[in-house]
Amino acid sequence: MNLFRLGGDLLHVFSIFVLTLKIKTSKNVAGISLRTQQLYLLVFCTRYLDLLFTNPFRSGLTMYNTVFKILFIASSAYIVYLMRKKYKQTYSVKDDTFRVEFLIVPACLAGTLFHYRNTFFEIVWAFSIYMESVAIIPQLYLLQKTGEVENLTSHYIACLGGYRALYLLNWVWRFFTEPRYRHWIEWIAGTIQTALYADFFYYYFLNKTKGQKLKLP
């Protein structure tokens, strides 16, 4: 555990809190991609299958991971529930149209072809890493289409980008401090995932320095 990793995890939790806050305070889910949220739920459910056979009391880190894993699954399921049931009327159904099969199918292929060990859980785990790296795309697509979003929604995406950036720093840190730390699947997928936020960040900071809502050209 290092400060980059801890900061990344906390920022990830914070981003979900910001999203929930946006939904609760505005009582609407406009501008939020249900497709991205469902992909995240899929990512967490497939990545954290190990919850079923890991003793959370094995170590401090296992307990830490278990708490976060349950939190991520539960909170993303809750957001999907809010979007599909409670605030269904406000959902941007006409604009949230990115075809997720273009993301799921390649992620399945990549997971099947490139994984660490030839076991069911390892292949599903690798799929979840590839899936997460592109899961934000429907949200960015919706953003492009609507052109302007509420502040909290843009803060949410910015926090997610920040979480990814901190994870990259965490890997650099671990690469130099831990012997044999060679996690190439995470590195490649994580770099792609972080790079996807580059364009968003550009406009985010451009609009924030002018004190405006996020507006895309």
Binding site: R5, D9, N65, R117, Y167
Partner: peptide, 10 residues
């Protein structure tokens, strides 16, 4: 083994 790629991250 499991520890080698123990997936100790989230």
């Amino acid at each position: 083994n499991q520890q080698q790629h123990g997936h100790d991250e989230l």
